[in-house]
Design a protein around this nucleic acid. Sequence first.
DNA 1: TTATACGCAATTGCATACACTGAGCCATCT
DNA 2: AGATGGCTCAGTGTATGCAATTGCGTATAA
Lengths: 235, 235
Amino acid sequence: MTDQDLTQADTVRLAIEREIFGGQLAPGDALEEGRLASRFGVSRTPVREAITQLAQAGLITKRAHKRAVVAQLDAGAMLELFEALAELEGAAVFLSTSRMSEAEKRALKDIHEAAAENLRSDGDPNEYADLGFAFHQLIVRGCHNTALIDTTEWLALRVLPYRRFQVVAPGRLQRNQTDHDAIISAIFAGDAEAAREEIRRHTLEQGDALMRFIALNKTSHADFHPNGLIKEQPL
Amino acid sequence: MTDQDLTQADTVRLAIEREIFGGQLAPGDALEEGRLASRFGVSRTPVREAITQLAQAGLITKRAHKRAVVAQLDAGAMLELFEALAELEGAAVFLSTSRMSEAEKRALKDIHEAAAENLRSDGDPNEYADLGFAFHQLIVRGCHNTALIDTTEWLALRVLPYRRFQVVAPGRLQRNQTDHDAIISAIFAGDAEAAREEIRRHTLEQGDALMRFIALNKTSHADFHPNGLIKEQPL
DNA sequence: TTATACGCAATTGCATACACTGAGCCATCT
DNA sequence: AGATGGCTCAGTGTATGCAATTGCGTATAA
């Protein structure tokens, strides 16, 4: 049963997801069923199914008889998303503080220290970003409530296509690390309410910083388009 | 452009949703594509699409090469769901307290008082349930954050197939009304933190009551079946 | 030049046909 | 008898064809 029994629609969906998160498919790009079908060597049917799923997940917007498009967030939507995400992560960490096992706490600390080391040694910013992502993920999963975890990660997914900007903002990393410091301290101190407030503020600030950064490079006045503004990603 | 331009897949999806919420389709029931197709007078294609969407929404569970099934919640899953919902509603009301317009507050109060009147006059419990649902909905929507609203309602949807039990629990209604009283007071007092705590406790308690009620009528020891008929459901 | 009407190509939504999987049933073997 | 293996068939996954709709270039008008 180790065979996941992946259907072709699943394969296509995962492939498209990767391309969205990897940046090959940027917000605003059109997804044409026929092209994707031939690109993946399947018929339009599984492609359609994959697109339907991604649309339901919010990664793609799709309207009847119109081409599917990689979801594009205007400033307002992104603000809302980060606000909601801040609340959800706050709720999660509130629970996590009393529910994380010792092993989970240690893993969290390990990641946090690896990130610190990355900063000290002026390491790869992409690696730092990955560590930050893992940090948040560990905290959220620490609440041991799959409904809340899934919901939170579902929201987080939607900003992911934009999040790779974060790393280029200068001076942000140090501040990020300080925030994480405060969060982890609150968790280890068992102060759930403080942990909630810290992560709420932190996530809101992250969103703010991302938006401000994007706004500086924006071309359209309401929409962002990652690849149009930034040089290149090493993926 | 008032025409919503509903595709057949949408129509089918809405129809299935209604049947799930209405109870004609109970958790655990199998959805066979071919039957649904002929019942709705369409081909399997739009039915498949509808099922895919509902699966992504969590209302039905679907595994490769197996029949789709109306989502069935075991005790643990339901507990998690209510816990998550409590957190989300808490987050929403926290924001709503400072964001609801006067008109929205008045509408909320009107609903609340209609519910009180329903209780005083020993009215239709179903109507009371609807009012309660509207009460929660108004509060959630009052936060004016569509991401948070959608997420919360998305979670609430998943317990909806079970929620029609609530009304039969004796003595619950009065307590429910008292809780709502406290919530609305906190909102009008502008005490966001109190409102959050009140609705958190309230929603958790609602879930508790529902689960306890179902547990009394259960035959299987982990799974619930609204219609009172438990069907075999090994994993 | 800008705006509007129109027609054709491209693309989606749906139907149908086919391929594959998995669960039961029965026969066969030990 | 119980286990094992193939057979059957209901049902899902995928491919393909066709009709309906869009949007986009072109022509025409203001």
